[in-house]
Structures are given as C-alpha cells and as structure tokens.
C-alpha cells in the first residue's frame, strides 16, 4: 500500500490522443504554466493525468467514452423544434460546429452587457430570449447535455481566456475566492490543488483542479458534472456554506480557474472517477 501511494505521487507519464469519427485529436495535458502563475508552478497538468489507467483509457476513444451518450442527447435537443414558435438551435446556428472555439475562451465578459458569461448563460439567453422558453436550471440535464455538445466542438483547442481589460476585476474576485479558506475545515482551493496536487487525500489523488476537461463524466455519479457543480462539491467538502452554481461568485471563480489552465486544451467531454 505504501508503495502504491508512492508510485502515484505525481501525474502519470502519459499522452492523450483521442480516436474520434474525424480522426485522432491530440490533447495537451501538460504544458508551461501561464505567466501569472510563474511563482507557483512551472507546469500545469490536466486532471486526466491524475486518474488511474482504466479511467484514462476510457477517454482515449469516443467509442469507450460514456459522456458521448450525453453529447448525443445534446444533439437531439439542438435539432429539436422546441421553441415557443418552433425555433431550434439548428435553425439559427446551423450545425453545432458553428460553436467551435467558444468553449476555449469562456468565461468572458460580454461586450454588450458587460456581464461575465459562462456557457450556461449564453445557452439560457437563447432559450429564454430567442425561444420564449423557461430558463434551464444551471445544473439541469438539459443544460448539461447542451454543455457537452458545445464543449466538444472545441476539443483539442487551447484554453485561452482573457484576464485583462473588462475581465480583470472578475478575475481578481475569482482569485480571492480561490485563496480563501472556507468552512469549519478552513480550506481553500489552493490548499488542495496548489499546495498538495500529486498527494493523496485518503484514496483521492489530488490534481491541480483544472477545468479544461469539463463537463466531465464522473464514474462515481454515473453522469455529467459541470465545473459549477464541481465547485459546489469541493466547497461543501470543507464544511462550508457553498455558493450556488451559476452565482456571481462561482462565475468569477470559473474565470480564474479556467485561466490557470490557459495553454491546456479543451477535453470536454472528459472522464473522471
């Protein structure tokens, strides 16, 4: 046991090339840290490198990736005439490949409204404003199916979220949350994912807590988990009052955490346990 622990100490030495219908896609799971992290890390790693062999293998081929079921469901919704007047996503946006590149630059500040937008916000803007429907719940199945479909269109593209200009003050807010020690356990994201990545917290191998893989199929939940949902879970585990998924705080946090992964590529949809 002690030996197994020691062997698992660091990220795996492994490469991820995913077999897809459109040929192999190479995923950058390890790269130089963004400049603002220079005093913290040399290298950033995808959470994929911290999972065991079996879990890693499930992401190597779309045929074995259980998240693809949810992508297919997202595709059905994309094409469905579900709007109050029969509108569909496809009717306005053509194929989902029109969304290529979007996931890699989110969250971002919307030029018109000045609001910090996560992908869920863009989807809901169309669901309510352009289709006349009730807002989808931030962590509802409808929402996560659509997140899966749209994220997949950016697979293999480098994460490149803006942290300056109008994003700067949201980014600072997210950074502050990242380093705050919440709850009765008085733990921050940084305590686990910056100071202790590579270590075992009981049976869990701590990663850097990157969001490039989201949404992810989590074997333990047998379903999709969005980044917003993962944040709720991690803060709850510190015996704290969490922020809500989709709250201003967690949107700012998603921007900050995403920026820590600038240079990794989008995996969405990934597999974790």
């Amino acid at each position: 046991l002690a030996l197994a622990g020691a062997a698992l100490a660091g990220p795996a030495e492994d490469e991820l090339v995913i077999e897809t219908d459109d040929g192999p896609v190479r995923i950058v799971t390890k790269t130089a840290a963004p400049a603002f992290l220079a005093d913290t890390f040399d290298t950033i790693y995808s959470g994929w490198l911290f999972r065991d062999d079996t879990t890693r293998d499930m992401e190597r081929d779309d045929f074995d990736n259980p998240a693809m079921v949810f992508v297919d469901r997202g595709m059905d919704a994309w094409n469905a005439a579900m709007g109050a007047n029969g509108e569909s996503c496809a009717g306005c946006h053509q194929g989902p490949e029109s969304m290529a590149g979007l996931r890699a630059v989110l969250p971002r500040v919307d030029a018109e409204s000045g609001k910090l937008m996560i992908l869920e916000d863009y989807i809901n803007a169309c669901v309510t404003g352009r289709m006349g429907l009730e807002k989808w719940g931030t962590t509802s199945d409808d929402m996560k199916d659509m997140l899966s479909l749209i994220s997949l269109q950016s697979r293999g593209m480098p994460v490149n979220v803006a942290i300056d200009g109008p994003a700067a003050h949201f980014w600072e807010q997210g950074k502050e949350i990242y380093y705050t020690r919440y709850g009765q356990l008085e733990m921050s994201c940084a305590n686990c994912h910056e100071d202790n990545y590579g270590n075992m917290i009981r049976a869990d191998h701590l990663s850097q807590g990157q969001v490039n893989g989201f949404p992810t199929y989590r074997l333990k939940d047998a379903g999709m988990v969005s980044a917003q949902q993962r944040f709720v879970g991690c803060v709850r585990d510190t015996r704290a009052e969490t922020f809500k998924a989709g709250s201003d705080e967690f949107r700012a946090l998603e921007l900050y955490v995403a920026s820590r992964g600038n240079g990794l590529t989008v995996e969405g949809v990934s597999v974790r346990h």
């Binding site: 020690r181 919440y182 709850g183 009765q184 709850r236 510190t238 015996r239 704290a240 009052e241």
Partner: peptide, 14 residues
C-alpha cells in the same frame, strides 16, 4: 471565526 461556516457537509449555512 470561520468564513462561511456550514452545517456539517450539507453545503447549507451553519
């Protein structure tokens, strides 16, 4: 003296 103390592991306020 905690920041956002919770009610155990429920995620709710304590």
């Amino acid at each position: 003296g905690f920041v956002r103390p919770g009610d155990g592991f429920t995620g709710k306020a304590g």
